[in-house]
């Protein structure tokens, strides 16, 4: 614990020992004030599993359905089973046996989508969350009776209560006894307390450890670009540039290859090639500017040499910063770039 006494000593030291600890403590206790009853009732809205904090009120399945269609269905679907915006709340995966035992059997089936009512053990959770956070775009706008009616509608969708059911603070406890996964939670694990006992501990083996190093999973090529081009998600000039994962678009290179257009900057070619991460046209960035390259090789028949440098990378011609091999580029792109670079006058 941060020791109160230790803090006192620290602060007293700053005060040069002139103030008595008593003065300091009482002065510190002047900070903050007692909360009023109205303030407490405005903010203390939580409802606990034993229903401490639950306000009085009631609502029917029918009232809930009307409210649901008006304010909730656009995200959750008419029957709370939509997977469009949020995970489904109900999906018909709860059996009568589940309700009897209080354990949802389908939770062991990987093919079954986990819904709210398959997991949640405590009815208070549903009430409390709707009350504090729903609707999505207008939280805390529902009256207590409206919350009861919405919970009633969801219980009905989950086949826990009948169509004509009216939920109220009087019968919440009865319904709790029907929650399908009410016995499905365990606190028997080591992760609640800092002193908890771990369930799995690794090996301390140092040499010739018996581990299976067979590769069991990796990202297939088609998934490598699913998060965008990784080349653009890493520092460009370091020793570990990003892998080019975006396919290089097939370009028609006839235009830049025409002699009358060789002096034009092939902007689209540069855009797709990734060269501009390190090279600018008119000035040196990480690598030399294109104008400087064109000037150096003006008059020389250097297009084959430059194509090779683009493909293989290099170091030392323009300085010590190495250029990585750009072997991911299409031959047509490389050749068009090399032709342009070699066409300086």
């Amino acid at each position: 614990m941060f020791r109160w006494a230790r803090l006192s000593i620290v602060c007293l030291t700053f005060l040069g020992g002139n103030a008595l600890a008593q003065d300091y403590l009482s002065a510190l206790n002047e900070l903050g004030r007692t909360a009023t009853a109205a303030e407490l009732s405005a903010w203390d809205i939580d409802v606990r599993p034993d229903f401490l904090g639950l306000p009085p009120g009631s609502g029917s399945v029918a009232q809930g359905e009307a409210l649901w269609l008006d304010q909730c269905a656009s995200c959750h679907g008419d029957f709370g089973d939509s997977n469009e915006v949020f995970s489904p709340i109900v999906l018909g995966n709860i059996t009568e046996d589940d309700v009897r035992t209080g354990r949802v059997a389908a939770l062991t089936d990987p093919s079954v989508v986990r819904t709210t009512f398959m997991k949640v053990a405590t009815l208070s959770t549903i009430w409390d969350y709707i009350n504090r956070a729903m609707p999505w775009n207008a939280p805390k706008s529902l009256a207590a009776d409206e919350v009861y009616s919405l919970v009633a509608y969801l219980l009905n969708l989950a086949y826990i209560v009948d169509d004509d059911f009216v939920l109220s603070d009087e019968n919440m406890e009865d319904v709790q006894a029907l929650m399908p996964n009410r016995n499905g939670m365990t606190e028997d694990h080591g992760l609640w307390s800092v002193n908890g006992v771990p369930d799995v501990v690794g090996s301390a083996c140092i040499t010739n450890c018996s581990v299976d190093t067979t590769i069991t999973s990796f990202l297939p090529d088609y998934a490598m670009n699913a998060h965008g081009n990784l080349r653009d998600q890493m520092r460009h000039y370091g020793p570990l540039p990003g892998v080019q994962t975006a396919p290089t678009p097939q370009l028609s290179v006839s235009q830049p290859a025409q002699s009358d257009s060789l002096d034009q900057i092939p902007a689209d070619l540069l855009a797709v090639s990734g060269c501009e991460a390190c090279h600018q046209v008119n000035k040196a960035l990480v690598g030399p500017g294109f104008t400087a390259i064109r000037a150096r090789y003006a008059g020389a028949d250097a297009s084959a040499y430059l194509a090779k440098k683009i493909r293989q990378g290099g170091q030392g011609v323009w300085g010590s910063v190495p250029m990585p091999a750009m072997n991911q580029l299409d031959d047509t792109v490389v050749e068009a770039l090399a032709l342009w670079l070699a066409s300086g006058k």
């Binding site: 939770l107 986990r114 959770t125 939670m185 365990t186 694990h189 992760l191």
Partner: peptide
Amino acid sequence: YATKDEASHYVDLMPSGQLRQYT
């Protein structure tokens, strides 16, 4: 308190079908 994010989410599903709560 079994709030939404310790009753519906942030509960760890075990092979037994039990959910570890208050991890």
